[in-house]
Amino acid sequence: MNDVASDTIPYIGEDDTYHDINETIGKQFLTVSLQGETYCIDILSVNEIRGWQTPTMLPNAPEYVKGVINIRGNIVPIIDLRQRFNMEFQEYNETTVVIVLSVEEAGISRVMGVVVDAVSDVLNIDESEIKDAPDMSGSIDASFVMGLCNVDDGVVVILDVEGLLALSDIRKHYGAEERSEESVS
């Protein structure tokens, strides 16, 4: 009877480690094209890819906020990535897609759709291959860029999803509107 003593104490395994698949083969990125350039988005933040549908506009929103659509009962805002990056606006066509992205903010996940010209590929990129972006005085805000990476003979820009989905600019837009009204009065 005594020899079973240790067996009868239930024991929750501590060596039950979880191997993250991404550690071995690098991260996967979805590549999209915008005005002929290639951008990468961490595939783990992509919820789904949809065709373009006319959203319900939001009053007095910044130009790049296209409006909101209904995705299975959720109200999801849509932003145009070209306009967000101050590129030339292009009429939506059949390759235009909306990539629905999600970010975690304080434990709550937030969803937003971004409009891009087209999706092209999925790339495996090892994290060590990602280089810091050089100081860019170009059109793209530095907070949108996580880094650069050489792929074959080209360079792709890896986008920072959190920066992309940040609401601070939009908040600023609405705040500025109010302030200007107040200051005039």
Partner: peptide, 27 residues
């Protein structure tokens, strides 16, 4: 009533959004 600020921010003059019978969003 669905709130706008779950995924966005709340806007003056709009108290929320809803989904119409045809699936469209109305403010």
């Amino acid at each position: 009533i669905k709130s706008l600020d779950t995924n966005f921010i709340s806007i003056d003059g709009i108290s929320g959004a809803t989904i119409l019978g045809d699936g469209r969003v109305a403010l």
